[in-house]
């Protein structure tokens, strides 16, 4: 598993040239998306509690609760995807890439991002047509018959932000490939297993143990 090391974009990194600025701007949108996603998770907890008590104590379950949850799920299934990509939080096998150094490493990372750009572009377009289909020909949830398209729309939106992030990362890796001596900016720094474990431990132990603030 790959996890974030301490190189989040900061106000300081934002001053490191165009890449730093770009990284930071996208990061702000990513943080907003992720906070929104967090709020939905918090809301899911609250609505679950209300549903249980409503049903048990007052015999008054929230009508369409399951449908509502299904519709809301795209927020926490997708909105934070770009944020997590920036932090190097999506799972991958580090066995080989963790051993690479210098130009070879940045070339491999760059190639990886190009593949991702292609896939995500397709997912945006066909996720969008999926939404349009649901809007034009009608698609609804099972019980409460809420329209499905707003939920489907979240997917291409989240993927669009991810695509922009991947573009910034491609730029970041290309910059490092050109000159491996530069400080990595705008890309997650992913180390070997031991370094990731350190990051993972820091996460579990809370913010106080995390290196490098925001």
């Amino acid at each position: 598993m790959a996890h974030a090391l301490g190189n989040r974009p900061t106000r300081q990194s934002a001053r490191e040239g165009f890449i730093g600025w770009l990284d930071y701007v996208v990061w702000q949108i990513e943080r907003a998306f992720t906070l929104l996603s967090s709020l939905f998770i918090f809301g899911l907890m609250m609505i679950g509690v209300v549903q249980v008590f409503g049903r048990k104590l007052f015999d008054a379950p929230i009508f369409g609760y399951i449908d509502m949850v299904e519709l809301a799920m795209t927020t926490f299934a997708f909105l934070a995807i770009s944020y997590t990509e920036r932090l190097g939080g999506h799972v991958r096998m580090e066995l080989l890439v963790g051993k690479l150094k210098g130009r070879v490493q940045w070339a491999a990372e760059f190639a990886s991002v190009i593949v991702a750009l292609f896939v995500v572009a397709i997912l945006i377009y066909y996720g969008w047509t999926h939404t349009v289909r649901a809007y034009e020909f009608g698609d609804s949830t099972i019980d409460a018959e809420y329209p499905m398209w707003p939920s489907k729309l979240v997917v291409p939106i989240a993927f669009s932000l991810l695509w922009i992030r991947l573009l910034v990362m491609a730029y970041g890796y290309a910059r490092l490939f050109a000159d491996p001596e530069r400080t990595p900016i705008g890309v997650p720094v992913v180390g070997n297993v031991a370094e990731q474990a350190k990051a993972e431990a820091a996460e579990a132990l809370g913010a106080d143990a995390r290196e490098g603030g925001r």
Binding site: F137, G138, D139, S140, I142, E145, P147, M148
Partner: peptide, 8 residues
């Protein structure tokens, strides 16, 4: 019933 909106 899987998708009432698709087949009203």
């Amino acid at each position: 019933f899987y998708h009432p909106g698709k087949n009203p």
